Simulated scan of single mutants.
Amino acid sequence: MPSAARTLGLIAAAVVLAGGGFAAGRLTASEHASTASDCTEARKLYREYIDAVTPDQEPAQQRTNGRMVANTILQNPACFSTADRASAQTILDTIDQGVQEDALNDLKECLADATDEYSWSDC
């Protein structure tokens, strides 16, 4: 009988360990059904933003659409590849750099146009 009790104890321990592992896995795993539906929406938005970019748009509108595309990718990392996420971050960095360069160029133009001390206040 002691061997039957030992066997039963080992089986019970195995069930507890397996159940604990399963529970821990479920707590840390993503939901496949909701991820699939979330990805559908994210990919749909991504496609809409990509299609909205045209060469004849104002630079500000192109930047806005670029930010929308990049943020859609970065805020849904499970739906896009590592390369997509890296590209999205590069897009945001490039946009930020362009905005800073534009601001600096505007300031340079304003300073170049300033001819008297009162013109400086407009910069």
Results as ranks from 00 to 15, higher is better:
Y118W: 14
E109T: 10
A42H: 08
P2G: 08
D51A: 15
C39F: 03
M68I: 01
S37D: 05
T82K: 13
D113G: 15
E48T: 10
I50Q: 10
T54I: 08
K44C: 00
A83I: 04
A88R: 06
T28S: 08
N71V: 03
T28Q: 08
E48H: 07
D51I: 09
V99T: 13
H32L: 14
A13H: 12
G9W: 09
A83V: 07
A114D: 04
Q57T: 03
G9V: 02
V69K: 05
A29D: 05
A13G: 14
T7I: 13
A24T: 05
R63S: 05
D51P: 02
C79Y: 11
A13Q: 10
K108G: 00
D106W: 00
N76K: 01
G98W: 05
A86N: 04
I11A: 12
Q75S: 07
L74T: 10
Q75N: 08
E41R: 08
R43Y: 02
V69D: 01
Q89T: 12
G66L: 09
I73Y: 07
C123I: 11
D51G: 11
E109D: 06
R6M: 09
R43L: 12
S34W: 01
L92R: 06
I73S: 03
A78D: 13
D113Q: 13
A5M: 05
Y46W: 10
L104Q: 15
S37R: 08
D102M: 11
G21F: 02
A78F: 03
S34L: 07
P77S: 06
C123A: 08
D51H: 13
T94P: 00
S81C: 02
A4Y: 10
Y46N: 12
F80E: 02
A14P: 01
D102Q: 15
D106P: 00
Y49D: 11
Q75M: 03
Y46T: 02
E58L: 14
Y49P: 05
A86L: 04
L45Q: 11
D38L: 09
A86P: 00
A52Y: 01
L10F: 07
W120F: 15
E31Q: 12
D116E: 09
S121E: 15
I50P: 00
A4M: 09
